[in-house]
Design a protein around this nucleic acid. Structure first.
Length: 278
DNA sequence: TCCCAGGCTCTCT
DNA sequence: AGAGAGCATGGG
């Protein structure tokens, strides 16, 4: 049973085995986390910088954060209220999914800031992880807010005030115009990001796809990684390949309720192993 | 050099 | 409604 302890400005999380930092922070759902040579992870989310680490006894430490930030931001960000153990039990009724769960152990689905997630996955299309991270970094450095050594992700208002020429520094290619369209529609209220978690999946997807450059895959990434839609199922090239090889295109019945979480395990399993190479 | 990248839009049937 | 070219940029 998990519990939290607050001491010396740090937060300790005990009794939470289903939280692997590299799997969760480097599995392709978020792009602003990195690990130093001492296994300490650092990143910025919701305008806050955080360092965290898994200790030898299995506990997780969040360094230099307040109780308030923990409950306002990180508790939800790291999806700490969700019982992954029972989800994994359910998914493991299928033997192939059981293997994927074991291989991908400790992946948690993050609840990221909606506008950041939207921009990140717009940038991700027809792109590779290294370049995605570079473009996002330049986006923050050029248009985010500088705060004591780090940059926040730019607001929609800030981006909406820019021109396509301003965005040339990102070297985002054809995606720059999509970012502007997203920012403008969010600012005008034509797309209401804050209401997406209250809508049925199909309606939420349709809402996001009003943005030029947002198709079903990017929309589902947003819904899964920042709007608590755990049935959203982003279909990228890897998943299409994996689904075809592993399941004959159809996700097993026992996984439907948590399709998005299953998706992430399959994605990690398939991409990280040589599973799909002939 | 060439091929490809966590896709999408546009155009043409 | 389904298929296919083109897209900006740079990593391998």
């Amino acid at each position: 049973m998990k519990n939290f302890e607050f001491k010396n400005n740090n937060i300790y999380i005990y009794g939470l085995p289903d939280f692997d930092l590299p799997h969760t922070l480097d599995c392709g759902q978020a792009f602003r986390w990195s690990c130093n040579d001492k296994n300490v992870w650092s990143g910025v989310a919701y305008g806050k910088y955080l360092e965290l680490e898994k200790l030898d006894d299995g506990s997780i430490v969040l360094y230099n954060t307040t109780k308030q930030d923990f409950y306002d931001i990180w508790f939800t960000y790291f999806d700490l209220e969700r019982d992954y153990e029972s989800i994994i039990v359910k998914l493991s009724e299928n033997e192939i999914l059981k293997k994927a769960c074991e291989y991908s152990h400790g992946i948690r689905i993050l609840n990221q800031e909606p506008f950041e997630t939207l921009c990140s996955f717009i940038i991700s299309q027809n792109n590779n992880i290294k370049r995605i991270k570079g473009i996002i970094e330049r986006l923050c450095e050029n248009f985010g807010e500088y705060k004591n050594g780090y940059y926040t992700f730019p607001t929609a208002e800030k981006l909406a005030s820019l021109t396509i020429d301003d965005l040339a520094v990102l070297r985002a290619g054809f995606r720059a115009k999509y970012l502007l369209d997203a920012a403008k529609k969010v600012v005008s209220g034509e797309v209401d990001l804050n209401n997406l978690k209250n809508l049925p999946l199909d309606d939420a997807r349709t809402e996001l796809m009003k943005i030029v450059g947002v198709g079903p895959k990017v929309a589902d990434c947003c819904l899964l990684f920042s709007h608590h839609h755990t049935t959203a199922f982003p279909k990228d090239v890897w998943i299409k390949r994996a689904m075809s090889v592993l399941f004959g295109d159809e996700l097993p019945e026992n996984a439907q309720e948590y399709a998005g979480i299953a998706q992430q395990y399959i994605f990690f399993y398939a991409r990280d192993t040589k599973l799909l190479e002939d």
